[in-house]
Design a protein around this nucleic acid. Sequence first.
DNA 1: TATTGTTATACTCTATAACTATA
DNA 2: TATAGTTATAGAGTATAACAATA
Lengths: 157, 157
Amino acid sequence: MGSRMRRKSAVTALDAHLGYWLRFVSNQVSQAFSRKVAARNVSVAEWVILRELFDGESVVPSVLADRMGMTRGGISKLADRLVAKGLVTRTADDEDRRYQALALTAQGRELVPVLARLADENDDEFFGDLSAADRKKIESVMRDIVRRRGLKTVPVE
Amino acid sequence: MGSRMRRKSAVTALDAHLGYWLRFVSNQVSQAFSRKVAARNVSVAEWVILRELFDGESVVPSVLADRMGMTRGGISKLADRLVAKGLVTRTADDEDRRYQALALTAQGRELVPVLARLADENDDEFFGDLSAADRKKIESVMRDIVRRRGLKTVPVE
DNA sequence: TATTGTTATACTCTATAACTATA
DNA sequence: TATAGTTATAGAGTATAACAATA
């Protein structure tokens, strides 16, 4: 933790921090992606939920909140919007009616591959020119940081 | 029912995108930093303005907007808050009174090194364990992406 | 007319906490 | 009492556009 040597100047430049560069690039990536999915009337966080629901039959909000690093309140609002758009359904569990499982509608299921392609295109726009080794290196470093710190928050792609 | 068929090859996993990992880590870094500076009653965007003002005598809002990739309206709101906190002053240019130069107050100037220290600590928490080579590699890749795409800010320095 | 900065509006995301329905 | 989910409120950040003052 403290093994990193630090310069003696009292006020480090903004761009001397790796966090500055990550935020800079990742904000651009997210905003570009946001503009793409907006054409389908979906927000980035909504996309993440849709994608999570695509793999399993259904997912319970509290599990989704854990997985996405959001609060249950946040998931609840997102779910409201997705239900209103006809992309997601809520179904109370028969054995314990506190659990309101979320699942994709047919319309939602059809939309996911379309959005997934936009995600692919967006990532390619920013990182397509990197060498495979560079991409792998960066992903590996990020995974390590996540693992080491036990992070579990938001991927807003 | 035929539409139930999953074409998994068409739908990339969320975590297969580099943008996902950058966002994931960079959100954590920003949120951690946000909690640190909140103790000084400053937001992250406010910190960036304060740091930008620290180097020069004064900076005009439109230049700041360009440099930070924000709109003039956004800068205006931030400037309001900083002025209200006694950290920044507005001064109309004598030769062209449309220009309302922003500058640090004495209090603002004293605060910057304190915040800079928090920024150093935060970056160190997340990236301090990386090898110098890895840090350099990642910074270099990010700079290239910014340069290649002509993204907004002027990486100072 | 063009530019600088301000103001108004709206939406997304985050955070906290009070509230309900169920167990 | 504990848990799952909802609702309310607040704030930051972003985006667009109308607007006033100045040039």
